[in-house]
């Protein structure tokens, strides 16, 4: 009973989706202020969501029906699991089990995978180009992201339990306050930008080239679920970063940290042009990867 409540209401689905949608409003509002506009009212993401729910869901004739409708559901289930696990392990470190960090990393890779599956299932040429770009980008950012997490694992003495990482940071201070910690957070922050699909890495749904990229064929209910899982990602990825690098959710300061990270993401999004896909790959492997490896070496020397 308690577990169902956790999954469906408090740290799970309902809570993270509402906070996620409010954060997408923050995103749109800050963007509007940067453009010197007024911006949408606070209920805008909710209006968008309910409108999409009430519309028709069209399925292309040639599409693989099952996969096309399964992909958004897969995405939303994965991200709900991330939310539930992340918060229960922050609040009750004892509930953490061995290897849950690895489980979380896998669950976080599922939403991009679901978009690739859905786009390929829709048999639209534009969506296919978007899917191939998303795949390339995915290979680009996943390596530095995991390397950055390895820095935390080394610094906490080789633990892969989130509960232990949170407790360690509670006693010894956050990972961020050291040279290798700063490097790790920086690398993870940039990878997060790509995971969210925001400018400069919004290559997969580049509006000017690919119409709506991977989401081209989606409408109604399925599109609403994709939008919702994106909103939840916007909430949960910064939470993941705070848990791993910045002390976890043990004090109320964590809320300020969350807002700071989100505004930082939005500022990066609004002040950069889009990269080409080969440039993005080069940036991740040639630019970011050596930095992450440097961080790992520093972490071995306890810096």
């Amino acid at each position: 009973m308690k577990v169902i409540f956790w999954i469906l209401v408090f740290p799970g689905f309902l809570f993270s989706s509402i906070i996620g949608m409010l954060l997408t409003w923050v995103d749109r509002k800050v963007t509007a202020r940067i453009h010197w506009r007024v911006g949408p009212p606070w209920f805008q993401p909710f209006a968008d969501f309910f409108k999409l729910l009430s519309k028709e869901t069209l399925i292309p004739v040639n599409a693989s029906r099952f996969l096309f409708l399964m992909a958004p559901i897969l995405s939303i289930i994965a991200i709900t699991a991330v939310g539930t696990m992340l918060f229960t392990m922050n609040f009750y470190p004892n509930m953490s089990f061995l290897g849950d960090l690895i489980v979380l990393i896998y669950l976080l890779t599922l939403p991009p995978l679901a978009t690739i599956l859905g786009a390929s299932a829709s048999k639209n040429p534009l969506a296919a180009v978007g899917a191939s770009r998303e795949m390339t980008l995915y290979f680009g950012y996943e390596l530095p992201f995991i390397t950055a997490i390895i820095i935390t694992i080394i610094k906490t003495g080789g633990t892969i339990r989130i509960g232990d990482i949170v407790t360690y940071q509670h006693i010894h201070g956050p990972i961020l306050y050291s040279v290798s910690g700063i490097i790790a957070t920086l690398v993870a922050l940039i990878c997060m930008q790509a995971k969210l699909g925001y400018v400069p890495f919004d290559i997969a749904e580049a509006e000017q080239e690919l119409m709506a990229g991977v989401y081209t064929e989606y409408s109604g209910f399925a599109l609403a679920l994709f939008k919702l899982s994106k909103a939840m990602m916007l909430f949960l990825l910064p939470c993941f970063l705070i848990t791993i690098f910045w002390g976890g959710f043990v004090t109320w300061w964590a809320i300020l940290k969350l807002l700071l990270l989100v505004v930082l993401i939005i500022l990066i999004k609004n002040t950069n042009p889009r990269l080409r896909v080969d440039q993005a790959l080069k940036f991740f492997w040639v630019g970011l990867m050596p930095l992450a490896v440097l961080g790992v070496i520093l972490a071995f020397f306890k810096l």
Partner: peptide
């Protein structure tokens, strides 16, 4: 454009007719 700021009313230009109202 920002001068008229239609996003105030929730109007957004989308790239695919599947998303359009």
């Amino acid at each position: 454009t920002p001068r008229f700021d239609v996003e105030r009313f929730g109007i957004v230009l989308v790239g695919s007719p599947r998303h359009a109202d």
